[in-house]
């Protein structure tokens, strides 16, 4: 059986049900890397250029983990996943960076996904990957449809304000009377337990109900994002701002927490816009958290606890 490795990092958090089902339906065995741990981080830091942000470094660690365990590693080059919107430039270069930095890699499956072009283009890409496993276009198409349906189930769970069980995050507050706080940040940071220093679990322990961008339908996000005077062409920034605009109008939202990685280009803009916007909104405080390679949790704990005290004193 052909083994396909999928790094449990970056776009994994958004698309893994699609990828996993697709490859499995084509008869491949999917191997995920372990959830991020200190060894993976260390491996990543060793193998990548030092200017990369922490999540990219960690991605390299996940690839290192998979390297000798599989026949292929799936590392899609995500250029654009929605029309006229783009992902971060570092995403674009990942397959090339991997090839240049890690010797003896197994074959990479690295289709370029650029949906700025027409819809038909996507099928071409699906076929490009699928034919490595089957010469039957119908079988590939069926696998793709099955994957899409898994993805939509996954997304549906989010819309019900739940964090899918596959992510293995304890997020339910102890008591029903809880504060509702919006957690903003890249999926690959806030749902990566190790990178986020268990932020969601810490919030749950403080009896905070976490809501996130993923829990809003694209329809709401796109509608809200349009109220921004300029078209936002970074896909992540658009989603984040759309959800900030939406949640800031909801009375039950007690505040916002934004977690980003040190040195993140798109976030430097997004964070400023959010800060500026929320300053004008009454009673919606914002907490900014930055992560980097350090593992001391004291800083995050202090800020989170102080933010909680602030919210509690407001609620009274």
């Amino acid at each position: 059986m052909i083994r396909v490795g999928i790094p449990r990092s970056l776009a994994y958090f958004k698309y893994f049900p699609l990828w996993q089902t697709f490859f499995e339906s084509l008869g491949a065995k999917v191997v995920f890397s372990l959830p991020t741990n200190p060894l993976i981080v260390e491996q990543g830091i060793k193998s990548v250029v030092d200017e990369a942000c922490l999540p990219v470094k960690v991605y390299f660690g996940h690839v290192q983990y998979l390297k000798d365990k599989v026949d292929y590693i799936f590392v899609p080059r995500l250029v654009s996943v929605e029309r006229k919107e783009f992902t971060c430039p570092k995403f674009l270069g990942i397959p090339d960076m991997l090839k240049a930095s890690i010797p003896d890699l197994p074959n990479l499956i690295a289709p370029t996904i650029d949906l700025t072009k027409q819809d038909k283009y996507l099928w071409k890409k699906v076929w490009e990957v699928g034919r490595l496993f089957s010469s039957n276009p119908l079988k590939v198409s069926l696998a793709w449809q099955k994957g899409l349906s898994e993805l939509s189930t996954y997304k549906q769970t989010w819309l019900e304000e739940e964090i899918p069980a596959q992510l293995n995050i304890y997020y339910k507050p102890t008591y029903s009377q809880s504060l509702k706080v919006v957690l903003l940040g890249h999926e690959y940071i806030i749902y990566d337990q190790y990178l986020s220093m268990y932020l969601i679990e810490k919030m749950a322990k403080l009896n905070i109900k976490v809501v996130t961008t993923e829990m809003l339908s694209p329809w709401i996000i796109n509608k809200e994002a349009k109220s921004y005077p300029k078209r936002i062409f970074w896909e992540f920034s658009k989603n984040t701002l759309g959800s900030v605009f939406y949640y800031s109008k909801q009375e039950e939202i007690a505040g916002f927490i934004l977690m980003s990685s040190f040195g993140c280009g798109p976030d430097s803009m997004t964070a400023s816009i959010i800060q500026h916007y929320l300053k004008g909104v009454k009673d919606k405080p914002l907490l900014n958290l930055t992560i980097d390679e350090h593992t001391g949790e004291a800083g995050i704990n202090t800020r989170l606890e102080a933010f909680y005290d602030l919210l509690m004193r407001r609620v009274g």
Binding site: F262, P285, N288, G299, R313, R314
Partner: peptide
Amino acid sequence: GVVTDFAMNTV
């Protein structure tokens, strides 16, 4: 006397 906003230096 009630905290309404705060910030701390980042990393």
